[in-house]
Simulated assay, not measured.
Amino acid sequence: MRRSARATRVRIVVTLNKIEVVAPLAVTEQHLHKFVSDKQQWILASQSKLLSKAPIQTAAPIRYSANSLIPYQGQSYPLVLSKTQQKQVKIQFDNGFIVQHPDSLDDEQSHNAIKNALIAWLKQQAKAQVHYYVSRHTATYQLKPRSIIIRKQKSRWGSCGIHNDININWLLIMAPPEVLEYVVVHELCHIKERNHSPAFWRLVAQHLPNYEQQRAWLKQHGLALMHSI
């Protein structure tokens, strides 16, 4: 929400990363809430259109060196490197990947060490996010998995075994967060509905009313994401 003395009317600006409501100073909060509510379908349609046309940002760098771009949650962030006397690669994230790597390694060794450390870091983030989304969605309809496994899969984003073991592809941490959430919900719903019947998709929609946007993103960008690293 942004108030502007120059604004003459309420308007909504939809981008990939946010929805901004620009309003004159005198407009009441009640009017703004009604305006946004009335425009909800237009907002969702605009988001879906932008999302379907968004360029995929999941290409891993050929070399893991300074300023290389690393895909993470639908965006790309630069590597900021510094050498250290420590024996292990240390990674921090602050609007970019801040990486300390051993000064005893040559360029090729540094490349491999940084790559392996980043993959391990991304897997950990994927695990944390998946567990968060599971906890967020299990309670409503008691869709409780027996176990949650995070791993790279060659042709699947997720699966639900006969004993309700959930598998999620860690590469989804490089997609927008909403896409990862959709895949988690998709597999959770298979605990109750074992096929892709209308009842299954209704259950998905009860958790994520706008799931079709995320499904469309995967259809368009999934192949590139699957081969990104």
Rank of each mutant, 00 (worst) to 15 (best):
Q220K: 11
H163R: 12
A59I: 13
K192Y: 07
I229T: 04
K18V: 08
Q47S: 07
L16K: 02
W157P: 01
V22F: 00
V21C: 13
P177W: 00
N169P: 04
R3I: 06
D94M: 14
Y182N: 08
M174I: 02
H207D: 01
I191D: 03
Q92W: 05
A5I: 13
L203V: 06
H196L: 01
Y72P: 15
I98R: 14
A139L: 06
K152S: 13
E193S: 09
M1W: 06
G222L: 04
D106H: 15
R3L: 12
V185C: 02
V27Y: 00
R215T: 06
Q92E: 14
R11Q: 11
A66W: 05
L25S: 13
Q47M: 12
V185Y: 02
Q85E: 09
N195Y: 06
A23G: 11
R2K: 14
N116Y: 08
R63P: 02
M1E: 10
N167F: 05
N112I: 12
K115V: 08
I229W: 09
A45Y: 02
V184A: 10
S135D: 15
P78Q: 03
K39V: 00
A54G: 08
L223Q: 10
Q57D: 12
Q86T: 04
R63M: 09
Q75F: 04
V130C: 05
Y64V: 01
L180H: 00
Q214P: 02
S110V: 08
D94Q: 15
L69Y: 01
